[in-house]
Design a protein around this nucleic acid. Structure first.
Lengths: 193, 193
DNA sequence: CCCGATTTTGAACGAACGTTCCATACAAGG
DNA sequence: CCTTGTATGGAACGTTCGTTCAAAATCGGG
């Protein structure tokens, strides 16, 4: 057998993901990725394929290691009502420190590429549906526990909360104001009764 | 005096705006703009300056002729509560026909450029603040008319509705499903009591 | 220690990018 | 009717884009 790779495939993919997350698909060039990963051009192509394939791998990693992991952690750590609140608050915390914010990679991608790229649209839509399902599940559980008002309709309110969350992802990139975001979170929680 | 321009400055700018709106800043090349406007390269540069200046002019035109005009029309045509509902519904109508949707030019731009471009961020933030003010004004008027519940707090609810509207702008590009959007609109209106 | 498969490397590719420039065409003023 | 200043047209600028390729370096197996 020949020599093995001189870099960790997942670690480099993570670095590439950070770059795409911060600057988007079009604005991030292969040269940028060569620079920030430290991996040679040819090696990037040999390992991940072309730019689009690398981007899809990056967004898949985000979906797995960020979105999916966060939902699982929240569900395991908090009660239903607080889990919902913490999801809405997730970005707010980071804003106060840095001022700027990358927001949600999936949502950034939704507006940049989803409208013209069916495969990207499918990935983004699936992630949104899982968040929607998370909200609905928490609402049902919260109603059973008496944390959430009995007249709240799980599906409808889940979709409403999803829209608010996506709105927060937009605001975090255009008006990174901690107080503004926190107020919207508080108002969203009021819908739970 | 010399010869006059062979094209209408505002009309060509409108065409360029449509292109930027549909495909975003990075994906729309000067060649695309030459093709879709029918105006020569040199004339575009002579008239509007470079690509960035042309984009800023386009987004300014959108802010003036779309967002500002729509808000004014809604305020003049409908009662407060219905004006809010019609604003949230504005995009939904167009989705059913075409399937795809360009969403809101300002919101698309918010995610593509606002995070790294202070001037764009200022324009986008200002537009959002005016929408917020529109919601607050309608709520106050609606409370006075008895269309909206007296316990609804104008500022807080206005921000909450803004977040929902921005969320709808994201969904319209990633999950162009008329029923989904309509359901979210209905739930948002429920917040008005 | 050498063989051989594979990665790494950096140069190079053609294409497309935003932008500039100059010869030409044109319309108004004297 | 010529002069004059602006708009137009299209070629060309240098740069950067995504991608490819062949030579060199590398390390495990016999």
């Amino acid at each position: 057998m020949p020599c093995q790779k001189q870099f960790d495939i997942d670690e480099v993919l993570d670095t590439a993901m950070q770059a795409f997350w911060a600057r988007g698909y079009e604005t991030t060039s292969m040269q940028d990725l060569v620079d920030c990963t430290g991996v040679n051009r040819g090696s990037l192509y040999a390992t991940y394929g072309d730019k689009r394939a690398l981007f899809l791998a990056a967004i898949h990693m985000y979906d797995e290691k960020m979105r999916r992991k966060l939902l699982a952690e929240l569900e395991a750590t908090y009660g239903p009502r607080e889990a919902i609140r913490q999801l809405l608050l997730a970005l707010t915390a980071h804003v106060s420190k840095t001022g700027a914010n990358r927001g949600c990679f999936l949502t950034n991608t939704a507006l940049e590429l989803a409208a013209h790229d069916p495969e990207v649209r499918r990935i983004v839509a699936h992630a949104q549906e899982e968040i929607e399902a998370f909200f609905a599940r928490m609402i049902k559980k919260g109603k059973a526990r008496g944390e959430i008002a009995s007249q709240v309709k799980p599906m409808e309110t889940a979709r409403s909360l999803l829209a608010s969350l996506l709105g927060l992802f937009v605001l975090v990139r255009s008006r990174p104001d901690r107080a503004l975001l926190a107020e919207i979170v508080d108002d969203a929680i009021l819908r739970l009764g």
